[in-house]
């Protein structure tokens, strides 16, 4: 069975093609602002090309992400939490929870034994934009995103407001203007972002354990993962291709329906 999934996030659109559950092609591109349907199609086509198959061979295309309504050729739309749950369970069998910290949204779900999800929580406005914030600050500080907040200068203890990413940005710019090293500022931003994201995590009443899968673009940043682990007191499982987990989950939803 060949299935496809598109995860259209605020920043990036990801597409995967699965054959009998295995990823045979994938692609990623910047979502952009205006031509989302075109971007979705292009990214999907790139994934098909990588898989070496034609669109007609795909039995179901499902879309998730904030831009899922802008994927006109998707036969099904899947909410982000459901897609994340399916994706985590597929990429990491035995996972008991999934957490996604993306450009815009943070979510966490406790995976159930008898049903897909036992409990979930989504970010509120004060937690929104964690990924976007980190990218913006990385660009401003001239540090590649995957190295943001890493290194010796990052070890200098300092803090920015963690109440909101907007407040954090103001504080961070203040620090910079007062001569702090870019990586020191970066580390403070990382810690603030981790605190914000962790707050969503703590909304769950079921306890987290060590089989929590971390997905989303921010999982690629080592410093952020370390900070989030420290804030939440857990060690995440980060599958290869974690940022495609949503697209994988959407694809699987296309076949499985809503019940495990």
């Amino acid at each position: 069975m060949i299935l496809a999934g598109i995860d259209m996030g605020i920043e990036a659109t990801k597409a995967v093609v699965l054959r009998d559950g295995a990823i045979i092609g994938r692609a990623k591109a910047s979502t952009g602002g205006t031509d989302r349907p075109i971007q979705a199609r292009q990214t999907y086509d790139a994934a098909l090309a990588a898989a070496g198959i034609a669109a007609i061979e795909v039995e179901a295309v499902s879309a998730t992400g904030i831009g899922k309504y802008d994927v006109p050729f998707a036969g099904r739309r899947v909410t982000e939490v459901i897609a994340a749950a399916h994706g985590a369970g597929h990429l990491c069998p035995g996972a008991t929870a999934v957490m996604s910290v993306g450009a815009g949204e943070t979510l966490i779900a406790a995976l159930g034994a008898d049903r897909l999800i036992d409990e979930y929580a989504l970010s509120q406005k004060c937690i929104a934009g964690v990924g976007l914030f980190l990218r913006t600050m990385a660009d401003r500080l001239g540090i590649p995103l995957d190295l943001f907040g890493d290194g010796e200068a990052a070890c200098v203890p300092t803090a920015v407001s963690d109440g909101c990413m907007v407040f954090a940005e103001l504080d961070a710019l203040s620090m910079l203007n007062r001569g702090a090293e870019p990586q020191t500022v970066a580390a403070a931003c990382i810690r603030a972002a981790a605190v914000r994201a962790a707050n969503t995590g703590f909304d769950l009443t079921v306890p987290n354990d060590t089989r929590t899968v971390l997905i989303g673009g921010t999982a690629k940043n080592r410093a952020f993962v370390r900070a989030l682990e420290a804030a939440m007191g857990i060690a995440f499982i980060i599958p290869a291709g974690a940022e495609y987990a949503g697209a994988v989950g959407a694809a699987i939803s296309g076949a499985k329906g809503l019940r495990k």
Partner: peptide, 18 residues
């Protein structure tokens, strides 16, 4: 509003309701 509708769908789906 779109996000709320999504959340309603998520809520219901998480309970196994279509």
């Amino acid at each position: 509003e779109k996000r709320l509708i999504d959340q309603l769908d998520t809520w219901m789906e998480s309970l196994g309701l279509e």
